[in-house]
Write a protein that binds this DNA or RNA. Structure first.
Length: 561
RNA sequence: UGGGGUGUCGUCUAAAGGUAGGACACCGGGUUUUGGUCCCGGCAGUCGGGGUUCGAGUCCCUGCACCCCAGCCA
């Protein structure tokens, strides 16, 4: 019945928004924000948050601000601002004219603080950070009140003005909220609102020597921007009472903070601190190394915005602490690319094949389908010659059962070209096969036999003479363990084979000028993208984003065990 | 031994007192000029114990497990 149809959509934040829209709490507005601190690169976990915040705004016809939470000049840099802007834009979201900074509100925040002092709800404290820590109490013991807690409003006003004016040194005094030193929630034990910090801010320069703390600044930023739903991660749950306390004490516009569980992925780490260590210790090339779960790394790896957005959609939004299987992310990529990626042939581990009954100098161009999932993608011509390369793995001297590829006396199809039959192998002094001698059947041009005979195997191939040589970087997961923390130190669980190089690899000539940002499918192998940093005009370098599913490899591995 | 949260197939996630469903993973089979895709089928779950109810994943009581919090970080 219609009751079913009218049912609000699934996740709990949407449910809250639906209820709000029904009650008219925000006059039907939905206004979210994505509030990164510009102190590092964005990763897949941030992508989830971006998709939630911008996605909700899109879905409800609302708005989402991009707001930099830049209240700690010691850690923040413009470089990060720029990378974050690029990443959010790349994911396909639009903040219109609302590129905002918490630092733009420093004056307003200061004025609000003066207000709070006047209301008797904040005081200047002379305790050192160590003294404050000692007096805060513990999880099970109450704190004790600062001796400066009951200064007069006038004294507080005066002292706060002098803090701002630069009369005191780094850390000498703080402005604290006057709440409750025996509160069971430590965040409510007279939290620091302002600290003295002589540091140059990436936007306000040396204008300020006092900087607001997160809890004070964040709610105010939300309030100033008329945010309706302030969505953050679970660890801020205990901060909500403080968020609410400040806004209530100020008697000002008061958004609702809602917390969801951050994304965790197995076989990787999703934490700025840990990713930084991987970068700093030179395990990877940088924050945008294709093995990194950063947005810039995924982009270089060949991931598409659509695949990341779909992934974020499918993992859902809940309050449960969970670890998502990295295979889900790969799956989202394959799903998107299968429909859209142009197909091309490339051989990464070449084995020479000579078609002994094919004319020496002949070059024939066969038609190849660009994308079997999309007729409109059309066809292209691929050069076929007497000498070719195929994958080493596609030939076996003594093939096991169910091996459908090439072997002595076996016939296979070279995709889009001809059936060939293997008649001999040339070996080097070590006994390794270096060259195959085959014959082709001219009747099978295009890959079909007029007599109706069938072959089990179809191989990809590249002309040994008409091709382009490239270097291909084959990436695998960064960690060997599902849980990189296993054993205590994630650095000990790094996968030493997370990067392998295939060189020279031979690609069909049609890909000599790859479309920038386009991820291709190399038939039977996987999805690959030209690397923006390593490629030069003379030398193409491709990154492997992900392999194709390979049920033969899986089967072979099982038999091997 | 304070406070705040969370427990549904192996993994994510629905079910809003009324048939525990989907996706991924895994296992079979079919189609296939990619051992890809697609299609069909299978496997498998409500943290435990009480209670309320015709009926409980959902409500109540109780226990257990796990996560977060003692920055002048965010």
């Amino acid at each position: 019945m219609s009751a079913k149809k009218d049912q609000p959509s699934s996740h709990f934040i949407k449910r809250i928004i639906n209820a709000d829209n029904e009650s008219g709490k925000w006059d039907g507005r939905v206004h979210t924000r994505f509030p990164p601190e510009p102190n590092g690169y964005l990763h897949i976990g941030h992508a989830k948050s971006i998709c939630i915040n911008f996605g909700l705004a899109e879905e409800y016809g609302g708005k989402c601000n991009l707001r930099f939470d830049d209240t700690n000049p010691l850690k923040e840099e413009e470089e990060y601002v720029n990378s974050i802007i690029e990443d959010v834009k790349w994911l396909g979201f639009d903040w219109e004219d609302r590129l905002l900074f918490a630092s733009d509100y420093f004056q307003q925040m200061h004025d609000f603080a003066v207000d709070l002092i006047k209301k008797g709800n904040a005081f200047v404290c002379d305790l050192s950070s160590e003294e404050i820590r000692n007096q805060r109490g513990t999880l099970t013991e109450p704190g004790t009140e600062s001796p400066f807690r009951n200064r007069s409003i006038d004294d507080n006003l005066d002292l706060f003005a002098r803090m701002k004016a630069g009369e005191f040194s780094d850390g000498e005094r703080t402005l604290r909220a006057k709440i409750n030193m025996v509160h069971p929630n430590l965040n409510m034990r007279d939290p620091v609102m302002y600290r003295i910090l002589y540091a140059t801010h990436h936007r306000t320069g040396d204008e300020w020597c006092i900087y607001p703390m997160y809890d004070w600044a964040h709610g105010l930023g939300d309030s100033i921007e008329r945010i309706t739903h302030s969505i953050c991660t679970l660890e801020f749950e205990d901060h909500r009472p403080l968020y609410d306390w400040f806004l209530q004490a100020l008697d000002t516009y008061h958004p609702q903070q809602i917390e969801f569980a951050r994304l965790n992925l197995n076989f990787t780490v999703v934490s700025k601190r840990k990713l930084k260590r991987i970068v700093d210790e030179g395990v990877v090339d940088g924050w945008d190394d294709p093995r990194m779960p950063t947005i810039s790394g995924l982009r270089r790896r060949g991931y598409t915005p659509v695949s990341i957005r779909n992934f974020a959609e499918t993992v859902g939004v809940t309050k449960r602490d969970t670890i998502v299987d990295a295979a889900r992310l790969e799956n989202a990529l394959r799903n998107d690319l299968n429909k859209r990626a142009p197909r091309v042939m490339g051989v990464l581990d070449p084995l020479k094949v000579v078609i002994t009954n094919y004319p020496e100098d002949k070059v024939e161009y066969v038609d190849a389908v660009n994308n079997p999932e999309d007729d409109s993608a059309g066809t292209r011509k691929v050069a076929f010659t007497r000498e070719l390369v195929i994958e080493k793995a596609d030939y076996m001297e003594d093939p096991p059962k169910k091996f459908f590829r090439l072997g002595p006396g076996r016939e296979v199809r070279l995709k889009y070209a001809y059936f060939i039959t293997c008649h001999g192998a040339v070996r080097d002094e070590n006994g390794d096969v270096t060259e195959l001698h085959c014959t082709y059947d001219p009747e099978t041009k295009g890959g079909a036999a007029p007599d109706g005979r069938r072959v089990r195997g179809t191989l990809h191939w590249v002309s040994a003479t008409e091709n382009i040589a490239a270097k291909v970087r084959l990436y695998d997961r960064l960690f060997n363990n599902e849980n990189p923390e296993e054993g205590g130190d994630f650095m000990k669980n790094l996968n030493p084979n997370s990067l392998q190089i295939a060189e020279p690899a031979f690609l069909e000539a049609s890909i000599s000028e790859p479309v920038s940002g386009c991820t291709y499918q190399f038939e039977r192998l996987g999805y690959f993208i030209a690397d923006v940093q390593h490629s030069s005009s003379g030398k193409l370098v491709f990154n492997r984003a992900v392999t194709l599913r390979d049920s033969w490899a899986k089967h072979a591995q099982k038999v091997h065990k």
